[in-house]
Design a protein around this nucleic acid. Sequence first.
DNA 1: CGGCCCGTTGAGAACTCTCAATCGCGGTGG
DNA 2: CCACCGCGATTGAGAGTTCTCAACGGGCCG
Lengths: 261, 261
Amino acid sequence: MSDTTVTSSSTLATDKTSSGKQCHHNPLVSCGDCRLNAICLPISLHIDDIDKLNNIIQRGRPLQKGEYLYRSGDTFQSVYAVRSGTVKAVNITNDGQEQVTGFYLPGEVLGMDGIAQNHYTNSAIALETSAVCEIPFSRLEGLSLQLPTLQRHFFQLMSREITSDQQLITLLSKNSADERITSLLLSISTRNHHRQLSATSFRLPMSRSDMGNYLGLTIETVSRVLSRLQKNNLIAVDKKEIHILDMAGLKKIANVEPDCQ
Amino acid sequence: MSDTTVTSSSTLATDKTSSGKQCHHNPLVSCGDCRLNAICLPISLHIDDIDKLNNIIQRGRPLQKGEYLYRSGDTFQSVYAVRSGTVKAVNITNDGQEQVTGFYLPGEVLGMDGIAQNHYTNSAIALETSAVCEIPFSRLEGLSLQLPTLQRHFFQLMSREITSDQQLITLLSKNSADERITSLLLSISTRNHHRQLSATSFRLPMSRSDMGNYLGLTIETVSRVLSRLQKNNLIAVDKKEIHILDMAGLKKIANVEPDCQ
DNA sequence: CGGCCCGTTGAGAACTCTCAATCGCGGTGG
DNA sequence: CCACCGCGATTGAGAGTTCTCAACGGGCCG
């Protein structure tokens, strides 16, 4: 039950927090003990195989807010699973503009964009103090050759990135500002719910600017839409704190099936 | 040199065309003889390995214009490489709208969106008479366990889909109608060039409606922008025939580095 | 306390959409 | 053979949503 299988080579320094499986910032928690293992890369791996996966994973010190996990153009070496906090991925255009392409919450994996060209095409930046598990890709590839289930999972992980990117494409192409904002709120709500957190009360990890950038809107429009949703008693907004007051109403705006998570 | 290694179980019927490696519609051409093998899945596989890949690939009759390759919701079984023609991928929203998420030209692979949930999330529709190679995914997975290079290539292929989706996200989020249209024209130009075709004269395989849908614009806007580009002597348009008259000018509009393909 | 960053709100401008009319082409049928 | 229809595409005029520019408030920090 305790931290027995950790072989990480990372520079473990700050472990002021209580040990054990409670705290996600704790770099000693192995995949087998991590409370995210039901939604993270290890899903439905055998216990022995989880150990093998755990053995190639490196856990470093937490990232501070604003710190880069990697930068666009860096040589690709690893993919990363978020253990705590939130990380955004940012695409840099030819003319220097930044496009947020995704927000990654605990249990979610990022960095797969780097595989194709052996360089990351995005930069990844912590939106708050965040801990990540680093998964060296060459070792993951090797292990995938031995563990068909792991190969399958990683294919599925990449496929999920593709489908979620395509969902965003559809959102940007077809939906109004109200629909985009509402969809983002519901997405975060759903992902929180999957992590056993409240689906109706949460703190947005990103700024208005990041929301707008992600959704193809200006910060003024984001602000106006949030105010409007609040005025119509669909949500309560207090800076980054969101309370969903009318889940059905929001889903109606976002064109989501009422019974759909 | 001839068609020796074909073990396809497909119902080969119409082979009126001349045999050999010239015609892409010819279902008898093996991966080793296909003129697309430098840009398709087999890239840089060993000859023996190309044969192994070739042996799991199925080649059926060509798709007619408008015909579905697969439909959103179908059980996922295969990914497909386009051998000739063009295929579009279409995402269906909850409220029944259609979003074109990609155009797939010869040598390009589609269907990876189905891996995550074991069902395709997109539908794939031929934009003209098109031939495809069907690659049963379970067999590709098995072969990937034996051929590390193939596993690597397929990871890269999925990563490329991710990066191109994210490029589209950026385009939709940040760019004007002129920039979007111009970017699409340049994308098709570049992809044609990679297939040894003209980069400056080509036929658009898709309708104005498909272009607009893909780029988040109405057909009227697409039409107006094309007319404007023509008026400014950047391109010549005759229905679906496009002649690029000022490549540098187009790249300037699309915010692409002048020396960039 | 001043500066700075983030967020909110207002007013006018700009871009794209909507609605509508028209054209050309290909197929069909009288 | 030609009229007619349907479809895709073009073009125009007006409407609508979002953007731009601007002012302002509040919290944080030196």
